[in-house]
């Protein structure tokens, strides 16, 4: 009995250790979006300062598009930016931008400096639309299908690898539907 009792802590720890090891492979911040397979919530945003075209939920549909949440103060967006530029150069997929909680002029200055990968950009200066979309941080990218429904939410900067392995195949599949 005593022999078993002194072994018990080790056995318990072994069990917990297995969970820890599996837990490392999972990303707890990757919460599935409630919007998946639902139409994009209705919004109409003005253009950011220095641009003409704003962004509305009606602009989506017809073909598969991306909605990318970005801000000039967001460092990961700067990391992501060259990837988006490359995608827009290749005409891979139309990308619309949601300029999230930026001060007037900051978004334009940022795009003037780094280049503009976006077709249309909405100015979400107070973050209202981002709340409707369930945005947890920037950058975040929504894949919208040709019926204007949200099909996927990608959290964090899109890397070339993430594009190749996750987004490009998904977009292909959605185009086929």
């Amino acid at each position: 009995m005593r022999r078993f009792l002194v072994l018990l802590p080790l056995l318990l720890f072994a069990g917990v250790g297995v969970f820890f090891a599996y837990g490392l492979k999972r990303d707890p911040s990757n919460i599935p979006s409630q919007l998946i397979n639902r139409p994009l919530p209705h919004f109409e945003l003005a253009a950011i300062e220095g641009r003409d075209e704003g962004l509305a939920s009606m602009d989506f549909g017809g073909e598969v598009m991306l909605l990318n949440v970005f801000a000039s103060w967001c460092l990961s967006c700067q990391i992501e930016h060259p990837v988006l530029m490359e995608l827009s150069r290749q005409n891979a997929v139309p990308i619309h931008g949601l300029n999230w909680k930026d001060k007037p002029g900051d978004g334009k200055a940022w795009l003037d400096r780094l280049g503009n990968p976006y077709t249309r950009i909405g100015d979400d200066w107070n973050g209202r639309v981002a709340i409707d979309l369930g945005v947890t941080g920037a950058p975040e990218t929504f894949v919208i299908d040709r019926n204007g429904r949200v099909r996927y939410k990608f959290i964090g900067p899109i890397t070339p690898q993430a594009w190749e392995e996750e987004l490009a195949p998904l977009i292909e599949e959605l185009r086929g539907q």
Binding site: V6, P9, L10, F13, A14, G17, F20, A21, D27
Partner: peptide, 29 residues
Amino acid sequence: VDPARGVFILMILIAAIGGSLTLFAMRAT
């Protein structure tokens, strides 16, 4: 949040806790 770090710390955990508890199971009596 960096998986490489997590794996390393998990290894430290397993060595320290697993090692000491093994010793405990062998020697506590």
